[in-house]
């Protein structure tokens, strides 16, 4: 039983990172109707920014995390300007390929700069918490806390702020929002910036949890986050969070009890099942094409 709870705890920690990246996917897709394939690469940018800061300057977390998030945010704004704004309002495959091209550029750019091998991110948070035999490191707890804080922040932004309302207006019908004086380009920047900043934080979390970063870390991680977004439905923040964590837990349980090689199939199994039962995701609504 202890082992079971241990797996669940580990799963929750990884799952919260899936959820944060999936949240960004969903936000960008709901508001801009763009599938940003370069989105997981901004997590990679965050991880490498953490590596650079930790290696060259300081391992103080209060410096590393904000700087990494900032790097991811800047990368996101660049992606927005280069590939999302020019393809807005076109067929979804156009944005898919434009951002896909950028993601190839980013992966190989990172490989060019940092090499193929994983780099060591030497930031450590010491200590563990033990509750009834179940161990959670402070590092895990910190990343989980970060993820929850970001989810709450994103929800507050979308629901309760002026720009959040503009964002929702654009996601409903951008022509009408524009006619009422909403600056769509600014909303686009805010949305993509927020999404990628969150992805950057998730990237740092991953880099810290595994103490390493690789140029291609975005690929498999991004695919699973994407699946999370589709399973949950793109418009439901808590829903995406829930599905992300659930996926993390299920993966940990499958890896722990059945076979580690089946772990990567869990996401797709859930996907097929959910899409069969609820073709618009558990909590509903992909946009109309």
């Amino acid at each position: 039983m202890e082992q079971f709870f241990q797996q669940v705890v580990n799963g929750v920690m990884v799952g919260s990172s899936y959820a944060i990246v999936a949240l960004g996917f969903g936000l960008t897709f709901s508001v801009m109707h763009v599938l940003n394939l370069a989105h997981p690469e901004t997590a990679m940018v965050g991880a490498f920014a953490a590596f650079v800061v930790a290696t060259l300057f300081t391992t103080n977390l209060l410096v590393v995390i904000p700087l990494a998030v900032l790097a991811a945010l800047l990368a996101g704004l660049l992606i927005e300007r280069l590939a999302i704004r020019p393809t807005r309002g076109r067929h979804i495959l156009t944005s898919f390929i434009a951002t896909g091209g950028l993601s190839i550029v980013m992966q190989n750019g990172a490989q060019r700069i940092f090499g193929v091998d994983p780099v060591r991110v030497a930031v450590q948070v010491e200590g563990v918490q033990t509750v009834g035999g179940v161990i959670a490191s402070n590092m895990q707890l910190m990343t989980f806390g970060l993820a929850v804080a970001m989810m709450v922040g994103a929800r507050y932004y979308v629901r309760n702020t002026r720009w959040g309302r503009a964002t929702r207006a654009v996601s409903e019908k951008h022509e009408v929002a524009q006619a009422l004086g909403v600056d769509i380009n600014r909303v686009s920047q805010l949305t993509v910036g927020l999404s990628t900043a969150m992805a950057g934080a998730a990237g740092v979390s991953l880099a810290l949890l595994h103490s390493q970063a690789t140029p291609f870390m975005g690929a498999i991680f991004g695919t699973k986050s994407f699946v999370c977004m589709l399973v949950a439905g793109n418009r439901h923040i808590e829903g995406i969070m829930f599905v992300g964590i659930l996926l993390g837990v299920l993966e940990a349980l499958v890896a722990g009890y059945i076979s580690a090689s089946l772990r990567d199939m869990v996401a797709f199994g859930i996907l097929v099942l959910v899409l069969y039962l609820r073709p618009a995701g558990i909590f509903g609504s992909y946009e109309h094409d």
């Binding site: 434009a98 896909g100 993601s103 190839i104 550029v105 190989n108 750019g109 060019r112």
Partner: peptide, 11 residues
């Protein structure tokens, strides 16, 4: 390098 260019051309 060549994949960087490839991606850029694609975009």
């Amino acid at each position: 390098d060549r994949y960087i260019l490839y991606g850029a051309v694609l975009t």
